[in-house]
Nucleic acid binder design. Structure first.
Lengths: 213, 213
DNA sequence: AGTTGACACGAACAGATGTTCGAGACTATA
DNA sequence: TATAGTCTCGAACATCTGTTCGTGTCAACT
């Protein structure tokens, strides 16, 4: 079977992108204008081919009647991560139980690519209160997304509760012999060295969201 | 505030159900036929009310231009912000021209609530290169979303190009008499004072995305 | 050289679709 | 009783949108 032409691939990508960023698919003329095609019949011809190849389905004689086949359309990709509380230096870290999508009052919505390789299950969000995490380049009011995790690899940034100090911190974790080195993300700052027994890992940092003003 | 009438609730439910079972929202006439309403202007009138109540958003003069607000289908669509280049201390700030949907290779996808009150048009993203912006609590590899803007209010965080120093920086802007104070977000750090002529504002900071590891 | 199929294009047309207008009925309020 | 606001309705109109038609170019094939 002949591969799709570049223009056919471009049309398919355009429909996908358009459907993600709008709540409706594009018209023939929006595809034409978006791709700089000079005639609606060129778009129509290529859509016929894409339909024959089962890439799309067309509903005849209605506006915006293009449906993608086997593709996520409009908004299906948003991931909702529950904000289960706050994170501050002097507070123990709030860790969720088994949370369903409606077991919380607030959530942050992001595109799945912001999770990298992480699945959305097992993730939770905390809103930062105070300036104690500027050493992790995290500001007051930021939202951190964590993966619930009690152990981690060297070099991963984790949220830990320091028992003796009664303090929460977010730092890169290194197990060095009998002790732990907690390394600030800001390379200009000094690390913390402490006993392994003093450190309770609560979650691994996945990403940080800075709310707009 | 008056509650929605039964007919308004029925129209909203119809739009929700239709959008789930089709890949596109309904037309005015499809709502009319589906609910047994005898006139398109009745549908139009009630849609106006639903828009005033922030239940839907209408795009004027296009077909199927109804978008649901704050619903799992329809309204909460991903927003794609193009990443038009990098931002680093010693580089002039890359500002996009008139970007079409395919005028860039890479984009960051976020939920619309992460933009706060900003519309997605006029926004662009830059990837941070280097540690020069840790004073703004922004890390190497972070993505900053800016609104293209040449003037700003006191207190807003802006990306500016310092002409004499040939340097880019992200700081809170305060116009103080004949000079400008550029205040780091990290309150433990010292501000910069410079002549207003030395400062070129390129964009206002909307939000920061920290890529996962 | 001639033919065929793929792909492009401009123009026109038919139908789909959103919006507006004027009028009417009903309810709440002064 | 009069008025204002809400909601309904039919009809008309402007614009949007999909589809079709005839024509042209180019590459591959016979």
């Amino acid at each position: 079977m002949k591969p799709l032409t570049r223009r056919q691939q471009a049309i398919l990508s355009f429909i996908e992108d358009f459907s993600v960023t709008h709540s409706y698919p594009p018209t023939i003329r929006e595809i034409q204008e978006g791709l700089g095609i000079s005639s609606t019949s060129v778009v129509d011809y290529n859509l016929k081919v894409l339909e024959q190849r089962d890439e799309i389905h067309r509903n005849r004689n209605i506006s915006r009647g293009i449906e993608l086949v086997n593709r996520p359309t409009g908004g299906n990709n948003l991931v909702q991560i529950p904000i289960v509380g706050q994170i501050a230096a002097g507070q123990p870290i709030h860790v969720p139980g088994d949370i369903g999508p409606h077991g919380y009052d607030e959530a942050v919505e992001i595109g799945p690519e912001m999770l990298g390789s992480h699945k959305s299950d097992g993730l939770f969000a905390l809103r930062v209160k105070g300036h104690s995490m500027v050493d992790a380049l995290i500001n007051d009011g930021d939202v951190v997304i964590l993966k619930e995790q009690r152990v981690c690899e060297n070099g991963e940034t984790v949220a830990v509760w320091l028992i003796d100090e009664s303090e929460t911190t977010l730092k890169r974790f290194y197990l060095e012999g009998e002790q732990v080195r907690l390394q600030p993300e800001n390379v200009t700052m000094e690390p913390i060295y402490t006993r392994t027994e003093n450190v309770e890992i609560k979650g691994k940092l996945v990403t940080v969201i800075r709310p707009p003003r």
